[in-house]
Design a protein around this nucleic acid. Structure first.
Lengths: 133, 133
DNA sequence: TATCTAACTTGTAATGGTTACAAATATGTA
DNA sequence: TACATATTTGTAACCATTACAAGTTAGATA
């Protein structure tokens, strides 16, 4: 069981109830949610929750490295708990996004055509194993 | 010199003035523009141009495979002329987006963790050769 | 414990990109 | 030329996100 309160402190973020709940949700639900999905899920538990708080919190978490913001294939921002490097696969049939554990460490800290590469984001698109049948 | 009129016909798109100008702009300016950038550039030449037309046209071109829509790192859609497969590099200092001719054909038509991969989008982030000095 | 201050949360309004829609215009064909 | 269809246009609506100011909370200090 992760001590979310402690985790936030380690990242220099004061652990308010709202922040703890948001982090807990992201850690337990690896569904790459949008800000609105986070809000909808938590407003039941915290009826006074404000969307502004969700946006502010997600932004702060991303800046402090607690979360990663994703620009996947659609024009919307999604968030995920910051764990090991991995890539994303989106099914064109069901729309589900899968984490793929394979990463491309070979790309980071490399030079490509004279540019220094610090990060890489790989998004795959296709038909997932459940939709192939 | 590309015959844009003919190119549109080949893709099943009626070649109106607006559509030809938009395609011509994308082909000549490989700057991965947003819809608004396309509008701003062309409204001088076609004063009656409407943003709705630009959006409709970019959408149609993307659906017919004339253009490719990109979800890069920010939350905004950009468009580029559909040519050979390549990947993108964004400089975190100057913000410029570079095309990198290297692609990962090895990924397409492969299976990863049971999913069938049809497309791949690789976005690199770092410091470009001009900003390194 | 009481108080103070700073940080956090909230709600409303504003912003900006995108889309819906209906009217006006242009195009191709007979 | 006239008609039917497709395209363009402008306005209004929509939705995600941000700005802002006021209200609330929490930690530190005495």
């Amino acid at each position: 069981m992760i001590d979310f309160k402690e985790l936030l402190k380690e990242h220099g973020i004061a652990p308010s109830i709202q922040r703890i709940k948001i982090l807990e949700f992201l850690e337990k639900n690896r569904i790459h949610p949008t800000a609105d999905m986070v809000y909808q899920a938590l407003v039941q538990e915290i009826p006074t929750l404000s969307k502004t708080t969700v946006y502010n919190t997600l932004k702060a978490f991303t800046e402090k490295g607690v979360l990663v913001a994703l620009s996947l294939f659609e024009n919307e921002v999604r968030y995920e708990y910051n764990t090991e490097p991995h890539i994303h696969f989106k099914c064109i049939k069901c729309g589900k996004i899968y984490d793929i554990s394979k990463a491309f460490e070979c790309l980071n800290n490399k030079e490509i055509e004279g540019h220094k590469v610090l990060e890489h984001h790989v998004n795959l698109k296709g038909i997932c194993k459940n939709c192939r049948d």
